[in-house]
């Protein structure tokens, strides 16, 4: 039944074409069934990898991802370390009857959300860099 059929009261979005699998003996294989070796000729991978714009894209990603990962791992592991081995420190009252252990644990949620939003903001820039890079090689 085609999706435009007015009697088709289907709730879910259309998912796949009926023939997205390669029949036996067909010459051209759909894109999603090609193996890596068959796609070797699809682009000049080495030329893209050698491009200074690609190198600056990688560097820009590393500049964010490496410190961000080190930071969130350290911030997260500090919680069990402090709670486990320094309970006297963590059970001191922070404010309003709450102790530091609870405040620090709660702050992990805020930390995770903030790092995620910073990542998304940074990644929008990488999307633009990648698009510009690919446009250079498309012509």
């Amino acid at each position: 039944m085609p999706p435009s059929d007015p009697h088709n009261r289907d709730l879910t979005p259309e998912s796949a074409a009926p023939t997205d699998i390669a029949p036996l003996g067909r010459d051209t294989v759909p894109a999603h069934e090609r193996t890596a070796d068959e796609e070797k000729a699809m682009a000049d991978w080495d030329a893209i990898a050698a491009d200074p714009d690609f190198k600056s894209l990688l560097a820009s990603k590393a500049r964010f991802i490496v410190p961000a990962t080190v930071f969130f791992l350290a911030y997260y592991l500090a919680l069990p370390i402090l709670v486990g081995w320094f309970p006297n420190l963590m059970t001191k009252e922070a404010f309003g009857g709450l102790n530091w252990a609870y405040v620090f644990a709660f702050s992990q949620f805020i930390m995770a959300w903030v790092v995620a939003f910073l990542y998304v903001a940074a990644a929008a820039g990488w999307d633009k860099q990648a698009a510009a890079l690919l446009a250079k090689f498309r012509k």
Binding site: M1, D10, L11, T12, E14, S15, A16, A17, P18, T19, D20, I21, H32, E33
Partner: peptide, 16 residues
Amino acid sequence: FSARKSSGSAGYFAAG
């Protein structure tokens, strides 16, 4: 409804 559309590998394994 999904069963009528989840044809092919990408449809079945990856919801198209």
